[in-house]
Design a protein around this nucleic acid. Structure first.
Length: 115
DNA sequence: TTCCTGACTCCAG
DNA sequence: CCTGGAGCCAGGA
């Protein structure tokens, strides 16, 4: 029986590092992170990583990770349903109706290819 | 062990 | 434009 937990932990740690690299006032997507880590199609794992990221140190700014449409799909996993949006707005990101406004402008690609 | 679910995304109809 | 299915893979029952 192979211990996948070690790989998993590394993967999760990598996810956390990338998320912590997201500049304040910018956001990225689950898919972009997964692709950056060489696991294209494993965007759900990035979501799962966020799910268990609570209590991490340093803190993981999970509010900066949204789905490919700029929709705040993970907001229900915060302390309150509005916490995610509130934190983003506090950082200068405009959110309306759970949707990041000017998403193309605030999107940050982990690979640094786009800017 | 098998089966189901999910903070996702892509593709076909 | 909207809906459903498939791929993805770690956990929990």
């Amino acid at each position: 029986m192979i211990k996948y937990s070690e790989n998993t932990q590394s993967f999760f740690q990598d996810v956390y590092e990338v998320v912590r690299l997201i500049p304040k006032g910018r956001v990225t997507t689950y898919g972009a992170i997964a692709e950056y880590l060489g696991s294209r199609g494993s965007s759900r794992m990035v979501g799962w990583a966020m799910n268990v990221s609570h209590g991490q140190h340093p803190p993981v700014p999970a509010q900066r990770v949204v789905n490919r449409n700029g929709l705040l799909t993970g907001r229900h996993h915060f302390e309150t349903p509005d916490a995610m949006q509130h934190q983003l707005e506090k950082e200068g990101v405009t959110v309306k109706n759970n949707q990041v406004q000017y998403f193309d402008s605030v999107f940050w690609n982990p690979s640094g290819e786009l800017f």
